[in-house]
């Protein structure tokens, strides 16, 4: 109990300092609105339904983009990890595309898709594709070959070899890829929503900026932080669940 409280001491202290600096006037609300005001504006936006609508829209974009990009990355990673033919055919191309920063594509993406949903989906999918592809591919390639040999001796066919040895062996690496991709998902979405959007948290922030509603801007930033943290937490939970066998996750 006491231990779980310790990590929160510093953030709490910062909040208290922030609030007191703001209420004594040392910190102008034009520079940084105080926490109480931010909470107030959050409640207001919450009442109008705008807040949750925007959160939901952003979450949907993140989830969909992640599923599409991650899904394609996972499948291609599996293919190239398992088959030399597929690797020879595709890996070089993928590695070349990987070196293009996906956010650099924003101008062309806006030209192609406008500021619609497709633009965000495309960017998020592209961003999450590579970490999951690379880690799946790498995970499969580095499965202990002695275990595969053992599996063959003990009569496992190709399919059960995959399910019993290759996939579980690659899983730690795949999960690292997922955590990494989740981080990229949010970064990409923030950029895409701030630059080209008419809904979502990023749009909310940009819209608020025009009216000098600094509290809403800060609120948006905090929302992104919370959503990012939550998805990382979910990934961590999944890791704990899937890697129960791993000595590092025991106890």
């Amino acid at each position: 109990m006491r231990k779980s409280f310790v990590p929160w001491i510093v953030p709490m202290l910062l909040l208290v300092v922030w609030q007191s600096l703001s209420s004594t006037g040392l910190l102008s609300t034009r520079v940084l609105p105080n926490p109480v005001d931010i909470v107030k504006s959050a409640i207001e936006l919450g009442k109008s339904g705008l807040l949750f609508e925007n959160i939901w829209i952003s979450f949907k974009r993140a989830a969909l983009g992640f599923l599409v990009g991650g899904g394609i990355g996972f499948v291609l990673g599996l293919m190239n990890g398992l088959s030399r033919v597929s690797e020879n055919l595709l890996d070089t191309t993928i590695q070349m595309v990987r070196n293009i920063p996906h956010l650099a594509l924003i101008p062309i993406v806006i030209l192609w898709f406008g500021i619609g949903e497709e633009a965000k989906l495309f960017l998020v999918a592209l961003g999450t594709f590579f970490p999951i592809y690379l880690n799946t591919y790498h995970g499969i390639r580095t499965v202990d070959s002695s275990l595969i040999e053992m599996g063959r001796v003990y009569g496992l066919g190709k399919r059960s070899l995959f399910w019993n040895i290759v996939l579980p062996g690659a899983l730690p690496s795949i999960l690292v890829g997922i955590r990494f991709a989740l981080g990229i998902t949010w970064v990409t979405l923030i950029v895409a929503e701030t630059i080209a959007s008419n809904s979502g948290i990023g749009y909310m922030a940009m819209n608020a900026r025009e009216f000098m509603q600094l509290d809403v801007v800060i609120l948006s930033i905090i929302l992104y932080a919370i959503l990012g943290k939550l998805s990382d937490f979910a990934a961590k939970l999944a890791e704990k669940q899937c890697l129960k066998w791993h000595p590092n996750y025991q106890k």
């Binding site: 599996g151 001796v153 496992l156 062996g169 791993h246």
Partner: peptide, 28 residues
């Protein structure tokens, strides 16, 4: 090639770390 009548036990055991002991024994 490999033969059903023959089984080899390796120096390093080669248990699957992600399977419980009983499932390791029941492999295959």
């Amino acid at each position: 090639g490999q033969n059903k009548k023959v089984k080899i036990m390796f120096q390093d055991g080669r248990l699957l770390p992600w399977k419980k002991v009983k499932d390791n024994v029941a492999l295959g």
